[in-house]
Simulated assay, not measured.
Amino acid sequence: MQLNTLVAALGLFAPASALLRFGCASLTVQRLDPLVNPGQIPSTHLHQIIGGNSFNVTMEPGKHDLVAKSSCTTCQFSEDFSNYWTATLFFRARNGSFKRVPQIPQQGIESTRGGMMVYYMSDALFDTAQKSKVTAFKPGFRMLVGDATIRTREQARKFRQLTYICMESQASRAPEYIGFPPKPCAGGIMANHLFPTCWNGKDLDTPNHQDHVSYPEVGTFESGGACPSTHPVKIPQLMLETVWDTRPFNNKADWPEDGSQPFVWSSGDKTGFSSHADYLFGWKDDSLQKAMDAHCYVSCPTLKTQSITQQNKCLVNDMVKEPLDGWLDKLPGDNMVY
């Protein structure tokens, strides 16, 4: 069972569940990627980014202090200046033109400007004694889950919990798909990104931004799976939920003539298997560790919060000038769809 399916039942298990859950407004939508394509203007494909406003073309490890360089954050917890980003979703019409799919804020944060829902989980879901201990990420920590070049189910198997939900309503958390849902979704499509939860304890990053972290040896974080000996340090389960408003594109007469689903990632992927997300840690001082140690549920008294109005005011300037809205003849970056 996937974590987001279980999260739907958290009201029943709140005393035994330790996690933070908070909304983050959109910071910017640009073709920038300081993790995979540092210094490159523009990067290979379009991303939607949330978090601290120190986000930039280059964020060099050891030199770019996200906390010190940020003056605001789009996240509810005002001590979180981390940056989180994913590819953006496009609809490809039968005539071959493209339109960017907007994002839907989830229930309870409806006035948020786009963005995502972020989770940090500190306990296995049914650890009723809450004995688990996680080590919060360290300054300079960064990681990537998924692979923008993947196009097959077999290739995607190495990433255990990257899924989609074809939503009937905002409450939907099942069933889940590994690739794009093959049918119109009445409530939109939710993309779920769950990051690895075990760390080697020494590297803040590695060349591919993945080798320093690992999934549990067996099972998943929420099922209590143990970390492998190569990556013995248990870190929080970081999860991102993005709801894409595919409802305006549900007329199958506009879909490809062969009936295949019409959505593509900004990387050109029409399968959905290339789903990926990036993370640059930027919590102030030890605020995240304190929250993890407190085993808080959803919110946390140790953390400071800000209003959605304040979140929505936090922005960064456009560093890449190109059309993103309306109907486009090609994807930004002229990425081939395959």
Rank of each mutant, 00 (worst) to 15 (best):
P182N: 02
S223Q: 09
S223D: 05
M190A: 12
H193A: 09
N200D: 13
N200K: 03
H209Q: 14
C185A: 03
C185Y: 02
S214I: 13
G224Q: 05
I189K: 05
L194I: 10
Q210F: 08
H193M: 12
N192I: 12
D211V: 09
V218N: 08
G219N: 04
G219Q: 04
L194C: 06
G187P: 00
Y215K: 14
V218Y: 08
K183E: 03
P216Y: 13
H209A: 07
F195C: 07
H212W: 11
D205M: 11
E217S: 14
T197Q: 04
P182A: 08
L204D: 08
H212L: 10
E217L: 15
A191Y: 01
T197I: 06
N192P: 03
T220V: 06
S223C: 04
H209T: 10
M190W: 03
P182I: 00
V218R: 06
C185D: 01
T206W: 06
P184G: 06
W199S: 04
A186K: 13
K202I: 15
C185S: 02
H209W: 05
N192K: 10
P216N: 10
P182T: 00
G188A: 00
Y215D: 12
P184E: 06
C185K: 00
M190D: 07
T220D: 04
L194W: 01
D205H: 13
P216T: 11
V213M: 10
N208I: 15
P181Q: 03
K202Q: 14
P207I: 15
N192C: 05
H212N: 11
E222R: 00
H209L: 12
W199V: 14
L204Q: 09
C185E: 00
P196D: 12
Y215I: 15
W199R: 07
W199E: 02
W199C: 10
F195W: 08
D211T: 15
H193P: 03
G224E: 09
A191F: 01
D203I: 12
E217A: 11
H193N: 11
D203Y: 07
K183R: 01
G224S: 08
V218P: 00
D211L: 13
N200H: 04
G224L: 14
C185I: 00
P196K: 10
P196N: 13
